[in-house]
Structures are given as C-alpha cells and as structure tokens.
Amino acid sequence: MPVDIVPVGNVSAPVTRAASSALRSIYGCEVTVNDSQSVPDGAYDTGRNQYCAENFIQLAERVGRGEKNIAITPLDLFYRRRNYVFGLAYLDGSGSVVSTYRLQTSSDGGLSRKSEADVFSDRVRKEIVHEVGHTYGLEHCEDDRCVMNFSPTVREVDVKGEALCGDCRGLVGLD
C-alpha cells in the first residue's frame, strides 16, 4: 500500500528519511515524499499559540498521493482539549499527522547511550509508525513494548519499541 509523506513547514531531510525508513521497515509499503506544503489556512489558534492537528490531516488527505498520507511538521499541535499531541490519525482513515515539536528534547532520560540526533530519530520513527498504524485500523495496544501503545509523554515514547507486537501485526495482515 503506497504511503505519501507530506512535509508541512521546514521539515529536514533526516526527518523524512527516518519516517520513510520506518514505514518501509514495519509495513513493507512503498513510500514517497511529497513537496513541502505551507501551513494550512486557519490552523493556528492564537489563544493556544498552537496549531490544530485536524487541519494538517485534511491537508495530507487533500495533497497526498498515497492510499495513506501522513503530514510531518515541526510545529506544536493540539487536538481538542489535549494540551498537545505528538500526532493524530483517524482509525481506518487515509490521513494522519506527526509533530516533531515535542520530540526534540535532548535526552531519553538515560535509557540509552544514544546521541541526541539518534534519540530524536527513534522518536520520529515510532510516532510515524504509530499514527499510520491507526490509519490501518489499529487502536492503542496494551503491550507497553508495542509501537501502538499509547504514549502521551516522550518518556513513554522512548520506552516503547518501534515494532508492532504479534497481535497488532496480525490485525494488519503482516503475519
């Protein structure tokens, strides 16, 4: 199944490479990277000083060329009453979004001896796989090592793995 990455704003090449690599590795899908897009009109909320995640999903669905399309942005996103989100997707939908804004903290809390750049890349890979997993119909998983485990903090992103557990792999037909 083709997946198109839609950069929104100033997204670096290492971020799109990490995202592409993770999607190919976990889902075995064909991945393309779209041209960079401008921030969607009406996405910025002045009261919150953040951007509405849903607007980015709509942009990805509109301009993406894949069966699944994921926007990536360095901007800070929110969804409804949540203070922030790393990403958002609708179950069985065609669009999703990941924000790298809050994934850029300098440390993984001592979980590894990886460089700051490697920790950031790992987080990007996990969140891309997680959000695209939702578009494949996967809900949050109770297995704390599964990439589909709910992770509202970077610490929880760092703890979980990049791969789908056996149950989630089976649900998307990867076994």
Rank of each mutant, 00 (worst) to 15 (best):
residue 16 T to I: 07
residue 83 N to R: 14
residue 39 V to C: 11
residue 36 S to T: 15
residue 59 L to F: 10
residue 75 L to P: 11
residue 119 V to I: 15
residue 97 V to W: 01
residue 28 G to N: 03
residue 18 A to V: 03
residue 41 D to A: 15
residue 97 V to M: 04
residue 56 F to I: 05
residue 56 F to Q: 09
residue 52 C to V: 12
residue 93 G to W: 02
residue 51 Y to R: 09
residue 120 F to D: 02
residue 73 T to I: 15
residue 118 D to K: 02
residue 67 E to S: 09
residue 33 V to E: 05
residue 88 L to Q: 06
residue 33 V to K: 08
residue 65 R to V: 11
residue 112 S to L: 07
residue 27 Y to G: 03
residue 32 T to I: 11
residue 77 L to F: 05
residue 28 G to M: 05
residue 55 N to W: 03
residue 90 Y to P: 01
residue 55 N to L: 08
residue 112 S to T: 15
residue 120 F to L: 10
residue 88 L to G: 00
residue 77 L to A: 06
residue 18 A to S: 14
residue 86 F to I: 01
residue 64 G to E: 10
residue 25 S to F: 02
residue 113 R to G: 13
residue 29 C to H: 12
residue 120 F to C: 08
residue 116 E to S: 13
residue 14 P to V: 07
residue 93 G to V: 04
residue 99 S to N: 12
residue 104 Q to S: 12
residue 113 R to W: 11
residue 13 A to W: 06
residue 45 D to I: 05
residue 58 Q to F: 13
residue 15 V to K: 06
residue 68 K to E: 09
residue 83 N to A: 11
residue 120 F to Q: 05
residue 52 C to K: 14
residue 90 Y to W: 09
residue 112 S to N: 08
residue 78 F to C: 01
residue 96 S to M: 09
residue 64 G to K: 10
residue 101 Y to C: 09
residue 16 T to K: 02
residue 37 Q to R: 08
residue 15 V to C: 00
residue 110 G to S: 08
residue 50 Q to S: 14
residue 92 D to Y: 09
residue 84 Y to W: 11
residue 38 S to Y: 08
residue 56 F to V: 06
residue 60 A to I: 11
residue 114 K to W: 11
residue 113 R to N: 14
residue 45 D to R: 12
residue 93 G to D: 03
residue 107 S to M: 02
residue 113 R to M: 07
residue 30 E to Y: 12
residue 92 D to K: 09
residue 44 Y to H: 13
residue 34 N to Y: 03
residue 85 V to C: 00
residue 33 V to Y: 10
residue 92 D to G: 01
residue 24 R to T: 03
residue 35 D to H: 08
residue 79 Y to A: 01
residue 78 F to G: 07
residue 42 G to W: 14
residue 32 T to Y: 11
residue 32 T to R: 15
residue 16 T to S: 04
residue 69 N to T: 05
residue 86 F to H: 08
residue 115 S to R: 04
residue 29 C to A: 15
residue 61 E to K: 07
residue 93 G to C: 05
residue 65 R to C: 05
residue 20 S to G: 14
residue 60 A to P: 13
residue 27 Y to C: 05
residue 31 V to M: 12
residue 95 G to M: 08
residue 18 A to L: 06
residue 75 L to T: 09
